[in-house]
Design a binder for these strands. Structure first.
Lengths: 371, 371
DNA sequence: CCGATATGGGAAACCGGTGTCATTTGCAAG
DNA sequence: CTTGCAAATGACACCGGTTTCCCATATCGG
């Protein structure tokens, strides 16, 4: 039967060869799509399948003539190794997992974009896996996911990327991992980070340079490393400028639009009102803008706003938000390359960068305070 | 060696049993994670592995006692069949593909959310696959993706879901598929659609009911079914109200924020200006709002705007946009359930719905025209 | 009581690769 | 002319399931 299939395949192949000459034979194939197997290649090349395997995996030593002959056969037939069979034999799948817990939607998507760019034209595929940080079984869930799917590697998005136990878990089950974050929490091989702190310092200095002295902060949720880092940068920059920051000017946010509105309301009730507000992400900054509008506070004339993330919304509101952009797509790409590593960019020996610089994007939501 | 592995496993298992009593033994496992195999189960239950396989797949006939004993062993050991081995043996993977071509980012994400909800606690995983509609090799790319990964099924997002050749391709390679869209393009088993046309009619009627007569339309890109359907609905509703629509009131858009701005500018140059604009998606509606602001046109006093999609941005701009919401998450869930079908919801025999109703969300961007 | 039929269950091949180990060959060193 | 060693390649078991085929019982009508 194997022999029979092979013959079928060979015929199909020769038909394809002459397809350009013939008037086209749309002859639908049966439900079972015939694909050449490693045995077909071995027979066609007159070698054993182990030798073909050596060519595919560039392992072992083999004669140049043999290699070329096998490569020629592979090229002609369009043979592609069966990933399921390899996964079984190797005990390792060619899948990269993206594990996240519902952070910024836009970020997930940009991250996916970057990762998929890196994975394009490789044998790897991306498997998306949302988890629930609040569930006590989260670690077990992830563990069974990794073990069952025999994942090649995982990319952990913040905030769960900050959980050290997760990283240890990956090591334990022999799964490569890369953690994304707002600051360096792990060695370069396992970390892709943006320098949020520096960016916040720059943003705050920008407000100070414009003449603002009463600057409000809308923080991120407690327990988020990014929230802590951004807040630190803000406080540092103010201290550096010799500005004391009363506790009342710090409002707690949850990284959501609604929490931004609420926090803004509380800051607006202050007497005197802050002349500028730094919101730890764009969603909340948009909330501040929204709240200002509904109160009739003119932006940027009466209130300057700076956000963080440069999500699409920042450029779409009026006035467009001055914000901090971090290269999410590039970071995603880098994370993926770290995992597939030498497999893909074997030619270049340069390590993928681990830290990315964020930059201040100046738009229309900042102006000097009114006298 | 097999025997040895089995023993190791048994020991591990008993340790787990007493873990709650013991003071916890963090003892790291070796890189190779031991998992029970079907052979372990067979031996522990005193049957052949084929019989275990019968239990797992509910196939063949077997004694209740035997079944229960095997199920007990499976439960105790926490055995999960190796997906790679099953995939190899079955010639079919337990992966669902999500194939899309860069449409609305938010939509992709909501869709993913819905699909993942349906896939949660099943054996299926989601593989994301962006493609390039403009590439001539797109179909071949998708074909090789489906064939190589032996996908269980794919979910096609608009606009590529509108390509009939793609659907035929899926059939050909024996891969289940579901197409998402703005109107019904296929039989219920392969289609999940929203009733965009009806929703647009309702939205347009809303504008007409407010007293608007000069209503501009910003269309979607040519070749998109959703664009055509929405435009049809708009024109139908105007005709129904006895309003003639001059060609000049229709501006071409590309579903992007920038194209919305450009289209709005061209409409603003008209004399007299339209008193309302229906933009075929929220991105463009946000562009209209942005353009209006920069021209000093008050919304909704001087201009009413309606968008489509109810993406997050609709609620975050000022004034918040009246728009049409379609239940993307629910549609994603439905699409996934259609594919995993009887596998999951075997208990309930009700078919997953194929069409979903969109609804008008009234916010602040619509008001009667000024006298 | 016998042969026919249905049912439960096992042995072995198979899915398509990879790992281990042995074998053959070529060539330089002793 | 051996011996030694490395390169090149093949035979075969194995990864962990499923499928095919076949046998052993049990049931049952006549």
């Amino acid at each position: 039967m194997r022999r029979k299939l092979s013959v079928t395949f060979a015929v199909t192949f020769s038909i394809n060869c002459y397809a350009t000459v013939m008037t086209g034979t749309p002859k639908l194939r049966p439900t079972k799509v015939e694909k050449p197997t490693i045995n077909d290649i071995a027979r066609l090349a007159g070698v054993s399948k182990k030798t073909v395997s050596r060519v595919i995996n560039r392992s072992g030593s083999l004669n140049d003539d043999t290699r070329e002959k096998i490569e020629a056969v592979i090229r002609e037939t369009g043979y592609v190794p069966n990933p399921q069979a390899r996964a079984l034999a190797l005990g390792r799948n060619f899948l990269i997992g993206l594990v996240h817990d519902n952070p910024n939607a836009q970020m997930i998507l940009n991250m996916q974009q970057g990762i998929l760019e890196a994975l394009r034209d490789t044998e790897f595929e991306l498997v998306v896996r949302p988890v629930d940080r609040s569930s006590p079984e989260m670690l077990d869930d992830i563990r069974s996911f990794l073990v069952r799917q025999r994942l090649y590697g995982v990319i952990l998005l913040p905030p769960i990327s900050e959980i050290d136990a997760l990283a240890r878990l990956c090591d334990e089950v022999n799964c490569k991992y890369v953690r994304m974050g707002s600051s360096v929490l792990d060695d370069p091989a396992h970390m892709v980070a943006s320098n949020d702190r520096d960016a916040v310092v720059e943003a705050t200095r920008h407000l100070v340079a414009q003449g603002h002295r009463r600057i409000g902060l809308i923080s991120g949720p407690h327990g988020f490393n990014s929230a802590q880092v951004r807040r630190d940068g803000f406080e540092f920059a103010l201290a550096e400028a010799g500005i004391t920051l009363p506790r009342s000017l710090i409002a707690d946010g949850q990284y959501t639009f609604e929490s931004g509105i609420a926090a803004a309301e509380s800051l607006f009730d202050l007497q005197p009102r802050p002349t500028a507000i730094f919101a730890c992400n764009d969603e909340m900054a948009a909330g501040v803008l929204f709240a200002a509008r509904s109160r009739g506070i003119a932006v940027p004339e009466q209130l300057s706003i700076i956000g963080f993330d440069d999500t699409p919304i920042a450029a779409r509101v009026w006035p467009p938000l001055t914000t901090v952009r971090w290269p999410i797509v590039a970071m995603g790409r880098s994370a993926a390359l770290k995992i597939i590593g030498s497999t893909a960019s074997a030619s270049m020996d340069d390590q993928e960068p681990s830290t990315f610089v964020s930059t201040l994007v100046r738009r229309g939501s900042v102006a000097p305070p009114m006298k």
